[in-house]
Design a protein around this nucleic acid. Structure first.
Lengths: 346, 346
DNA sequence: TTGTATGCGTTATCAT
DNA sequence: ATGATAACGCATACAA
């Protein structure tokens, strides 16, 4: 297959390169008859312009990078990233962009990734990151490469991001447990470096405080988002002298571990332990009792992020207006919390 | 940030473009003193060559595409692809390549994907596909774009692929159940379009035949690799007049559904149903009883595929020798099969 | 060892 | 509406 160039097509169609180029970019100023002839030759030879040559002159790749968190468990193990990236690529496809999924952190060192970015391999990036002091965010800011972020840092110095109100979301989840009569409510935290971890913990504390329930440090577990950590921490909770009657988990993945720990002790959900999760993973219904959880609009987060990024890429002005979008969460009540407790043994 | 070019660096370092280029590509023929000076300027300005320009002249991108199956459940839901891609990107990183994860099937129509391939955005691709009549494989073959495949089709017309012996692997798994005294052994199949589905089914049939056990069609379920399908089919099995005492699942994901169905019936694993899975997912130990399963060397599959592809890319001759690599599987015996049955009630 | 010149395949700016 | 021609930023063959 001696790859044809635009020059070859031009010759074969009996026109100049310019005309072929015009056809390729569907510019109006070309006679229909000529256009058809050129199109025919293009299709007949399966010609496609070389991306590199095009990029060199336009200085655009029409592709964006999608950078995911580095936690291996989260990466493929946690479907929320699949959902987010689904939203991103959906928008990209519509707008004629391609999105390259980039597990920049897992399989490539930062320096190489930075090199790709500086090498202009992407017009922009969607960064999924709730990390505080994220090095990618810092790099992107410094170099001025367009990006939008899913998640954000407290300083809020990201130009554009989409996120949910994690404090409020968690508060509502815990309040739900309180409204059912629970007073010993355990909390499973995510990785400390993630902003949403402290935010969700904050929501937990606020809910307790509003209800006049003192915070018991024994009931707070430092997880890492993984099922394994949910398992280990729950075992610890259940060994407590006064074990919790309810548990709020910072994500659904950890709940899988919680369930196993509870069952291993011969106890039951929700009778012995009521559970509220976070994320609302579609898959979970297959694995454990239908989970009451805080629904996060993952696909929508991806959609909005991609839209904001592409809008920035397409604008002609150099200055970009900051945009911080907060999407709503929903408390989805199912079966993992049971009903209101009659007698409350505090 | 007015992006600098090689010309700028040359001027700043007081040398010609060629010299800077030589430094960039670490060619020997440049005086150490000069090299250092140029390096300094490069670093000082954070210069990185533009990928497009470099690609245009070299006609190589040094990046490969990694195309995954289109089944959404499999995509992120099934960690084996994470493991495979981990192997691929590991090798790529070592060899100075970058691998772009490409969910070509989920988020992009085939035509757009083909355009990218023809546009030379990748030097080659690793195709994870066990599909029969895979359109991507056909396209790659037709265009002559270098690729290696993880999985293969029966016709074996892929130039280079890595796979396991699915027939043999399944046969061993089922034989294990037979050796424990089971004679009513159900089989959970994967998607019909996947070659490995029919291969594993073939192994199942061979094992039964060797043991003189007649095949009972009632005990064969057409799954789709998903947990949900494992759940539904198992419910059906358990409602049978003579339910199976053992089950062989074509992958571990479906086993999650099997377990739930069994528990819902108030039955137990392995007492009421012995289970052998396939894959040996690291995560599963958290969710169900430690699973006896056929281990597939996923990471290794990715490694070998990437190695074979890069070898092909680096060679100078046009002709590539075919390579078909079959990696060994292992029966990992854990707890989901229990011990030998005393009395065998056929 | 270093510099000069040419070309990679495309788009874009001019003419016509 | 179409065709020459000049970039785009880099690597490389050839000269020096």
């Amino acid at each position: 297959m001696p790859q044809l160039t635009i020059e070859d097509i031009a010759r074969l169609a009996g026109v100049s390169r310019s005309t072929v180029s015009r056809v390729l970019n569907s510019q109006p100023s070309v006679r229909p008859a000529v256009r058809d002839r050129v199109q025919e030759v293009i299709i007949a030879h399966g010609y496609t312009p070389q991306a590199a040559a095009r990029q060199l002159v336009t200085q655009r790749t029409r592709s964006i990078g999608l950078i995911l968190p580095d936690n291996v468990y989260n990466l493929f193990g946690n479907p929320i990233f699949a959902l987010m990236s689904q939203g991103v690529s959906q928008v990209c496809a519509q707008q004629g962009y391609t999105s390259l999924l980039f597990m920049g952190r897992q399989d490539m060192n930062e320096q190489d990734m930075f090199k790709m970015l500086r090498g202009r391999e992407f017009d922009g990036v969607v960064l999924i990151s709730s990390n505080t002091n994220d090095t990618y965010a810092a790099f992107l800011k410094e170099t001025g490469i367009p990006y939008t972020r899913i998640g954000h840092e407290p300083e809020q110095d990201d130009l554009r991001y989409v996120d949910v109100d994690n404090v409020e979301a968690a508060r509502i989840g815990v309040k739900h447990l309180i409204s059912l009569g629970h007073r010993r409510i355990a909390m499973l935290k995510g990785l400390a470096r993630d902003t949403c971890t402290s935010d969700r913990y904050q929501g937990y504390k606020e809910a307790l405080e509003e209800a006049g329930i003192p915070l018991d440090p024994e009931l707070v577990g430092d997880g890492d988002w993984s099922t394994a950590s949910g398992y280990e921490l729950t075992k610890r909770f259940l060994r407590l002298e006064r074990p919790p009657t309810a548990l709020f988990s910072s994500n659904d993945m950890m709940v899988a571990g919680v369930i196993r720990a509870v069952h291993e002790q011969g106890r039951r959900v929700p009778e012995d332990l009521a559970i509220v999760g976070f994320d609302d993973l579609p898959q979970t219904t297959m694995i454990f009792p239908d989970l009451t959880t805080i629904r996060q609009p993952c696909v929508e987060l991806g959609i909005r992020a991609a839209e904001m990024l592409i809008e920035q890429l397409e604008q002609d002005t150099k200055e970009t207006t900051p945009m911080h979008v907060i999407l709503p969460t929903t408390l989805v009540i199912r079966e993992s919390c049971g009903f209101k407790r009659r007698s409350v043994v505090s």
